[in-house]
Computed example of a mutant assay.
Amino acid sequence: MSNGRSIDQFVRLLDALQTSDANGVAPPENWHPGDRVIVPPAKTADEAFARLNDAQYPCKDFYYCTKAL
């Protein structure tokens, strides 16, 4: 109790944890509901190459792709 806590940050963290659990994704740093989330890496090379050409998954590289929920 001696350290202050931001209720807004606590609610944002709770939303991020619930989103991660419900959708199997990883909210990035400073994520807010409605922002893009990070999808898990592809399990096969074929899936990774297909994801690189899919407009739903903007990818910086084959292992770092995002999507909107």
Rank of each mutant, 00 (worst) to 15 (best):
M1Y: 09
S2N: 13
S2M: 11
N3T: 14
R5M: 12
S6T: 09
S6Y: 02
D8N: 12
Q9S: 15
F10R: 14
F10V: 15
V11P: 03
L13G: 14
L14F: 13
A16K: 02
A16N: 09
A16T: 02
A16M: 03
L17A: 07
T19H: 12
T19P: 10
S20D: 14
N23G: 03
G24L: 01
G24Y: 04
G24P: 07
P27W: 04
P27I: 01
P28C: 06
E29S: 09
E29Y: 04
N30F: 00
N30S: 08
N30H: 02
P33T: 00
P33R: 00
D35H: 02
R36V: 07
V37H: 10
V37Y: 08
I38V: 15
P41C: 01
P41T: 07
A42L: 05
K43M: 09
T44G: 06
D46S: 10
D46I: 02
R51F: 08
L52F: 02
N53P: 00
D54K: 01
D54E: 09
A55I: 05
Q56D: 15
Q56A: 14
Y57C: 09
Y57W: 06
P58T: 10
P58F: 06
K60M: 02
D61N: 14
F62R: 11
F62W: 10
A68I: 08
